[in-house]
């Protein structure tokens, strides 16, 4: 179809438009920031602390909630049971609800008066206005990316290979760790990367649970609200650059051709 030059031209034009739509604002942000401001921003301790906190909180969310999400993805890929469609829908809920509403919802279960909140306080963990709350908020909004990618990854592993492994005497655990997980690893890595990236960029849910300590999206918002665009832009540009660097590295690692794919 694309061999027809008119069709090809229309497709190329529309594709270019979409790419420009994504690239133009980001390129504008980088280009409008003077070079001198970059070096100044990089030595901004408050911003650097905030970026470190954001990266670590999102990573903590991936590590803690991701461990449980992978078995769930396997179950959704392999098992047929009543209500499976509903569960798939529930998994996608954090993507479709407004993130400020997600923050309110999370606050409802982790605030000091709740069972989880009280249990956290007893263990010295404060969710509201604390790192734990940020981790929970980031994981809540980003977990669908991991579950969906890992589910598709497990679904792409031929069930016959798992049965062959069982036939060779492997236990179900061994089959999971030596066949299913390695063969789905590319999609799982993509899911983990997406979950981490989505967690990094979360503002709405985090700002409701914990304005302080300040993660970078909240810091950028505060600088914009208090001092204006020119003060917020360098921080945004540096944060976006860090995110892009990590994202590209992870995509390259996950995208490497492997034997399983």
């Amino acid at each position: 179809m694309l061999r027809n030059w008119k069709t090809g031209l229309v497709f190329m034009f529309l594709s270019g438009l979409i790419l420009l739509f994504v690239i133009a604002p980001l390129a504008g942000m980088f280009l409008q920031t003077p070079l001198a401001q970059y070096s100044e921003t990089v030595s901004d301790q408050e911003l650097m602390r905030s970026i470190r906190l954001t990266l670590l909180c999102s990573l903590a969310g991936v590590l803690t909630f991701g461990i449980a999400a992978i078995p769930l993805s396997y179950v959704l890929a392999r098992k047929e049971f009543p209500g499976k469609g509903i569960i798939n829908g529930i998994v996608d809920l954090p993507v479709v609800i407004p993130h400020s509403a997600a923050g309110i919802a999370i606050l409802g279960i982790v605030s000091r008066g709740t069972i989880i909140g009280r249990a956290g306080e007893a263990a010295g963990i404060s969710f509201v206005g604390g790192v734990a709350g940020i981790v929970v908020a980031m994981a809540f909004v980003s977990i669908p990316f991991l579950v969906n990618a890992a589910r598709d990854g497990f679904a792409s592993v031929p069930e016959k290979l798992e049965k062959a492994a069982l036939n060779l005497g492997a236990s179900p655990w061994m089959v999971f760790f030596t066949i299913s997980l390695p063969l789905a690893r590319r999609q799982i890595l993509t899911g983990l990367t997406m979950m981490w990236a989505r967690g990094l960029s979360e503002f709405g849910a985090v700002v409701i649970i914990a304005y302080h300590p300040m993660v970078t999206p909240v810091l950028i918002w505060e600088r914009f609200a208090s001092f204006g665009l020119s003060y917020a832009r360098p921080a945004a540009a540096v944060f976006v650059a860090v995110c892009l660097l990590i994202f590209i590295t992870m995509r390259l690692l996950a995208g490497r051709p492997s034997r399983s794919n």
Partner: peptide, 16 residues
């Protein structure tokens, strides 16, 4: 399956 003592070679071989 793993305790039957019956080994199966699939038609498509199913090598890992």
């Amino acid at each position: 399956i793993q305790k039957r003592g019956i080994g199966l070679v699939y038609q498509d071989l199913s090598l890992f």
